[in-house]
Design a binder for these strands. Structure first.
Lengths: 225, 225, 225, 225
DNA sequence: CATGAATGAGTGTTCATTCAT
DNA sequence: GATGAATGAACACTCATTCAT
């Protein structure tokens, strides 16, 4: 994904992410739908392999087995395909039981399950996560979009924390929203460090440590302690 | 800093960061040193304003008040000036009492001081931090370099944690290195969220919450609690 | 109608006007005739709105409510529809009493009626006249075709002038054909200046002045002078 | 100049004439000045040969013997070079005694001299005049610019006409400004018909007839009649 | 050493036209 | 016949880097 190979060249004359945020409607014919699908698939492959910046439209179209001009039948810009890829990946991320943490009585077990699910998902989508990081670092509008999407997750966690505090399970008096932001950030960063930066940690030890830090940070008295 | 404006175009035929990591020696004459200084200053201005990708060499040289060709008297590539700017900023970051946390008896006070120093520094260098994030997301070699530099800080914190554990001040049995990585990551991420993403938090509440989470995560029994 | 907007792009791989001059035969079925009619109508709308160069075939077909591919069922090229539009407009121009100058005794009244009819027609078809100008400036074959068509009008006027000279009504000894060319050109140019360039003249004053200049240029002694 | 040859293709992504109207400053060095000069010369050649639309930047630069990229050292767009060519041609048109009609007592002789000068100039710059016509038909901003420039000439003639009327030399009571516009238009159109459309007239007969029509239209009583 | 003009590889984008369904 | 997806040739344009002066 290093984009600074000797001789490499990049060029863009795009509409930016702000304009690409409102996607055009899907093609109506099955054939069009199929081609669009191939294009999104190809774009994902190329993006994950070369990064957003070094991905050339011609690479994407040739990977999809269509002519360069046909790209514009479906998308207006590289940004727009990227968002289509993102939509697809987001679907995929939600699909199975990922993030479906069992709502049991043991809060620490829940935190552990959540952390594990997050890290395993990160691992599975590691290349895409790096891509997200790149695009966010490049485009302000996309960065803001991403921030807002993250809030939903943060809010949900904040509510859990508040509940644990009310129930007296979490002794920490800290602000739930800030705590949620920071602790979620800690886990996200750990995923980035492991799967993008390549830190040499096993998922198990990561889950153990993160869970312990998280639980202790909230001063949750684990039953079995 | 959005690099995907309509009409924008980027190009590169550079040596990449890997090659730029070994800087050439400084010019010998005072005049040369001065010109180089102006160039680094200009580069910083332009980089912070436009981001690494959208910064054009000609913008940098004209900002510095020198001709385009003269750039190559001092640097071999955009990457190389960037590293020179980075070196300068790193100097600046260490300079005063920043990070000079008083080594007193109260561990929580130390953590608090450290967190505050970090966040204040982040704020001061916010635009540069965003820049770092961008370059790291673009170039693998630079990313690795940054990871390694970060280790020093992590190690230092890990040692502190280990000491607190040995002294029985920190009751947590967690691995000091992992804890240091994750907790440092938490603070770093919080800085990013606040000063790059633009979350609406006051530094004071950030310091309070981060310090509390950090201390509790290590199960440090604060004297006054 | 400016065809040099930022980002605009034009492309052609057409047969040119020379090849389009021999139109294909009309469709046989009523349905086909209707579709062709819609297409010509749509083409006229788009051409008059965007100019010949900026008019895209896809705009024309979508304006006509048919698919892009169906265009070629009726025409071979953009040039060919343009000529079909032209034929239609030419019909329309001749239709009512336009150019039907009463052949009375007062030559000045006839000139006046002719000038007024010309200018009113120009006004009515102003956008199309500008279009003609554009196409003529672009394509040599079309320019020649237009020149030849103009000759008929010029010849007719030349005959009138010759008759007036023979009858001693016009005292000017000037060559009738040249006079006709130049005086007709004067009126045509005036129409262009008024309705394409946007000069701020009322039709009445234009008619008055042009008629007077024309009559005096031929030294026609008006009865009532 | 026919721009619709089979297989021909045109493309543009220009700034339009409106933006090009404010020319950038001249290069400072002699070398730059020389190159710019070669570029303008080459542009004129290519424009006059191929027309504005079919002129490709690469044709201009290769005609000038420089690389394609160097074009942008001097101009931002095809429109901008065109305006530079125009400026050059306008210089050339004014240079010698062209349009320097001797201000004698014989008004008809003056009109004749003026008409001859105009037509001879038209002939000399025939290809460029056709080019002007094309560009005016294509771009609204340029069209307006041209209209305004023409006003100066019209005004000058209008003043002459008014003077002749005051002096009783021109018996016509017609409005001087309108008469000037229309009669000037007549001559301009005649030039266009002869040198662009290719009418088969000799300059002498044109001058004779135009002068006679013009003089009679104003009812100027020539001494020798 | 400084200058700034010159280079040129490289890719996004358009749209008339074709053609499989 | 109609559809609309697919094609692909063609150019403008950028800017890091070089090099003659």
């Amino acid at each position: 994904m290093s984009s600074t190979e000797t001789g490499a060249t990049r060029q863009r004359r795009s509409a930016g992410f702000a304009e690409a945020m409102t996607p055009r409607e899907l093609p109506t014919t099955p054939r069009g739908l199929r081609t669009r699908g191939r294009l999104v698939e190809a774009a994902r492959t190329v993006f994950e392999r070369d990064g957003f910046l070094d991905a050339r439209l011609v690479d994407i179209t040739s990977e999809a087995g269509i002519s360069a001009g046909s790209f514009y039948t479906y998308f207006d810009s590289k940004e727009e395909v990227f968002l289509a890829v993102l939509a697809e990946v987001e679907q995929e991320m939600l699909h199975p039981d990922v993030r479906e943490v069992p709502d049991g009585d043991d809060p620490v077990a829940m935190i552990r399950a959540s952390n594990r699910a997050y890290l395993e998902s990160y691992q599975r989508f590691a290349r895409f996560m790096a891509l997200l990081e790149q695009v966010a670092s490049i485009d302000e509008d996309f960065r803001e979009r991403r921030r807002q999407r993250g809030q939903a997750f943060i809010q949900r966690n904040a509510k859990s924390i508040a509940r644990l505090q009310e129930q007296g399970i979490a002794k920490s008096k800290t602000d739930p929203l800030l705590a949620s932001s920071f602790l979620s950030g800690m886990v996200a960063r750990a995923g980035y460090a492991r799967f993008v930066l390549g830190e040499d940690w096993s998922i198990d030890e990561m889950v153990d440590t993160l869970t312990q830090l998280w639980a202790d940070a909230l001063r949750i008295e684990s039953p079995g302690r």
